[in-house]
């Protein structure tokens, strides 16, 4: 998979952390639903779980690009990812869906409307994620803000078992400061914008918790094949 790409610098804002996060943004992933399967809930859920598993691999690679993440103790790196993996996955879906009307863009080749979500047995989750989409759309969420928020969500995972809390706090402060710097330069007339973005994180956390619960129950049901990394992270919750 090719990784590196450059984003056009849309602003004259030179924030190193934000630029670095833009560079680290993973390539898009395609869902590639299995054409041999009948169009039912199992196919939809199998497609979503497979897509999530592949995105997780990329997200772990992405996390390593966050300034300071790789210097954390390995145990703490694991705990942050175990705490925030679903928030990171959802935020990516939300950002991809900003231009879609009441539909979730899980991938370019996998877009789900409310009727399809009902068929998949995920109507509440679909509605919850759309609430986030509407919130960010109303704010005009920018790519730079999206990548920074994603990093903040990871650094803000609130694991109870962090070994070196000071180092994690430093990572959190670094990305928080990057967001504040970016907003000061990009939206000088809106001093509350960084705060308002951070205040969307509770809804993201709440929606991610709902998603993890849904997939835990799907797992218990045992009808949908799930890859190992996805299972590992589901178990971590």
């Amino acid at each position: 998979l090719p990784h590196k790409k450059t984003y056009p610098c849309r602003t004259n804002v030179e924030n190193k952390v934000v630029s670095h996060l833009l560079e680290a943004e993973p390539e898009k992933v395609y869902a590639m639903p299995d054409p041999a399967l009948p169009d039912d809930d199992i196919k939809a859920l199998t497609t979503l779980c497979d897509l999530a598993d592949r995105e997780l691999v990329l997200n772990i690679g992405w996390a390593k690009h966050l300034p300071g993440f790789s210097s954390l103790r390995l145990a703490d790196q694991m705990r942050l990812l175990q705490g925030a993996w679903m928030e990171v996955l959802l935020l990516r879906v939300v950002f991809r869906s900003l231009g879609a009307q009441d539909r979730l863009v899980f991938a370019e080749d996998y877009v789900m409307d409310a009727a399809q979500a009902r068929l998949a047995g995920l109507p509440d989750l679909h509605a919850g994620v759309l609430q986030l989409v509407r919130k960010y759309r109303a704010m005009g969420l920018e790519m730079e803000e999206f990548v920074t928020l994603k990093a903040i969500a990871l650094a803000n995972a609130d694991s109870m078992h962090i070994e070196d809390a000071e180092a994690v706090q430093k990572l959190q402060d670094c990305v928080h400061e990057a967001l504040q710097d970016y907003e000061r330069a990009r939206h000088p007339g809106d001093p509350r914008r960084a705060g308002r973005l951070i205040m969307t994180l509770p809804l993201l956390r709440q929606t991610a918790t709902m998603a993890v619960r849904s997939f835990c129950s799907i797992r218990q049901d045992g009808r949908v094949p799930m890859h190992k990394l996805f299972l590992e992270l589901l178990e971590a919750n």
Binding site: L1, H3, V57, L58, M78, L229, L233, A236
Partner: peptide
């Protein structure tokens, strides 16, 4: 760690997303 061996392995890999 044993329980989360894939996550552990992916984090230990020195290179990033390309390293699938």
């Amino acid at each position: 760690k044993e329980k989360h061996k894939i996550l552990h392995r992916l984090l230990q890999n020195s290179t990033s997303p390309v390293d699938l």
